[in-house]
């Protein structure tokens, strides 16, 4: 027997095998691709081909949003008007003397030289073009992207200043926001009255309520207490409204409360939002990285 024909027959058998089970092999290949998409995305929140896909879904979502605005703008107007009202009262112009040197400028300077303060947060407005509340992982799409200076990990607030979520993916004209209604989204918050910190998360049940844990029972918590954003986040400014305590779930096994928190932002009719940029984010993140390296 010669060696060469054996090799040729071996190859032939492989080809026959592939041909015979071609559908099953194709099925397995497509399954592996889908699962690979799923696993890599869940880990890093980076979808394959997201940039192009985001542009296309964004186009459809913008069309849809225009129609939806017609029905929902009234409620949004009310919220924005209320916020404007509170801001109008804060304007420096309300208290200014009649002085020719005073003029109103939009404050985007990094340093306020008169009071020796530096600017830490910049707000950009954006419009929500698509969002869901009935999945277990809910995302919002907004109509500002990297062209407008939006970057990953920026915080997102509702038009009334309450917390909505944070940016996780950016394309040139659109961004994806992981809302608080996402089972993997955990945010550090404070009870405003007692200043004790805890972690808030969503249990995928009711889109109106979040769950707050780690508040010790030595605090006296009442229904209706205000929950605000904590001071530990790099992307979300502290002291922003998150929600109010709706229910205190009895749990005798630990010395911590389980609180059901009603969100201030109504996730079903989000329209206009603010994207917050922390100008010190790079420096703070770098310091954290270097600290980790030194410890290791």
């Amino acid at each position: 027997m010669l060696k060469a024909p054996l090799g040729v027959w071996g190859m032939r058998n492989i080809f026959l095998f592939i041909r015979r089970f071609s559908t099953a092999i194709l099925f397995l290949v497509l399954q592996v691709v889908a699962i690979w998409f799923l696993i890599t995305y869940n880990k890093f929140h980076r979808a394959r081909g997201l940039g192009i896909a985001n542009q296309i879904t964004g186009w459809f979502n913008t069309r849809y949003n225009k129609a939806e605005d017609f029905f929902k703008m009234k409620e949004e107007n009310r919220r924005v008007h209320k916020m404007n009202d509170s801001l109008m009262n804060l304007l420096a112009a309300n208290f200014a003397r009649r002085d020719s040197a005073n003029r109103l400028v939009r404050d985007t300077l990094l340093f306020d030289t008169t009071a020796n303060r530096y600017r830490q947060y910049i707000y950009r407005e954006a419009e929500v073009v698509y969002g869901t509340v009935n999945e277990e992982k809910n995302y919002l799409q907004i109509n500002k992207g990297s062209k407008d200076g939006i970057k990953d990990d920026m915080g997102v607030l509702n038009s009334d200043g309450s917390l909505v979520g944070k940016v996780i993916a950016v394309s040139p004209n659109f961004s994806e926001v992981m809302s608080l209604l996402h089972v993997q989204n955990k945010v550090s918050v404070l009870v405003k009255k007692t200043r004790s910190a805890g972690t808030i998360s969503w249990d995928a049940k009711d889109p109106r309520f979040l769950t707050l844990k780690d508040i010790p029972k030595s605090d006296s918590i009442m229904k209706g207490d205000t929950i605000i954003t904590g001071t530990y986040s790099l992307s979300i400014p502290p002291g922003k409204m998150v929600g109010t305590v709706a229910e205190i779930v009895p749990d005798n096994s630990t010395s911590f409360y389980i609180l059901r928190v009603r969100t201030t932002a109504k996730f079903q009719d989000l329209q206009q939002v603010f994207v917050v940029e922390n100008l010190q984010f790079g420096e703070q993140a770098k310091l954290q990285e270097e600290t980790k390296k030194k410890i290791l």
Binding site: I35, L38, Y41, A47, T57, T132, E135, Y139
Partner: peptide, 8 residues
């Protein structure tokens, strides 16, 4: 999936 942001 690309509409729902859940690839896979």
């Amino acid at each position: 999936d690309y509409f729902m942001m859940t690839p896979g």
